[in-house]
Amino acid sequence: MSLKRRLTDRIFWVVCGVAFLLIAAPSISVLVSVFHQAVPALGWQLFSHRTNAKATGLQNAILGSLILLGGVLVVAGSVGVAAGIYLAEYATGRTEKLLRFFSEILAGMPSIVIGYIAYLTLVVQFHWGYSLLAAVIALSALVLPYIVKTTEVALRQVPTAIREAGAGLGMPRTATLTRMLLPTALPGIVSGLIVALAISTGELAPLLFTAGFTDTNPKLQLLHQQVPYLTNVIYTDISLPGSRAHATAAAAGLLSLLLLVILITAGRLVARRARRQTARMSL
């Protein structure tokens, strides 16, 4: 082997190593700087107190974020899973292609555009005001395509033999779907839902003009009641003067990340179960 080839090989791996460092270093820097800035605000008061000018509580924002996630799960989850089932199991020909195409286009919709339209229509035109419903709908429009896609993919990975077995036993389509297909595809569907929640956790642009903010705890009221949430705290508190506000902002960021880690871990566990299931079926 010539020196040139050996050298090229060596250089290539060095370049890849540098690329890896360029991924790792900024990322670690982000995580470390968030943690570092959040340290002064860390404590139980984050969970026991609400946001206000004097303390570093985040109770209302945490509750609000969780309620928003719950709302997304209900709205985008139900619609998205149903749509995914239709695309995988019922749609044919041009309908199938068009519905999937438009869903993918929606996936590329900039979140600020969704927020802007949600604001002009839901908040202003419909007189809902800054509200839970407007926020949940805006977020749902954002994550819906992901849920549709993952549900469809999960169902397509169920072997045809299972559908044929259902039909062969004389089971109605719906029974085949609920008894055989969905249980098999469930882990895949759930991990798609978790990805959607993870995306929702980090979003701010579609919420900025739909959710509003309040220092009180959120109520389970759909309209005319503003909803506090974590990413908003980061955005607003960082522009306030004073180290306490900045530490609160960083703590809100840290909690968002924590929520994200929980969601990702849950997603991994579910996905691992899904893989084991697929492996069993292909035997």
Partner: peptide, 17 residues
């Protein structure tokens, strides 16, 4: 997991960083 976490970091956090 690490890559997924990075992909999910809120953009406001990146902005501040």
């Amino acid at each position: 997991v690490f890559l997924e976490l990075l992909a999910g970091i809120p953009s406001i956090v990146f902005g501040l960083w």
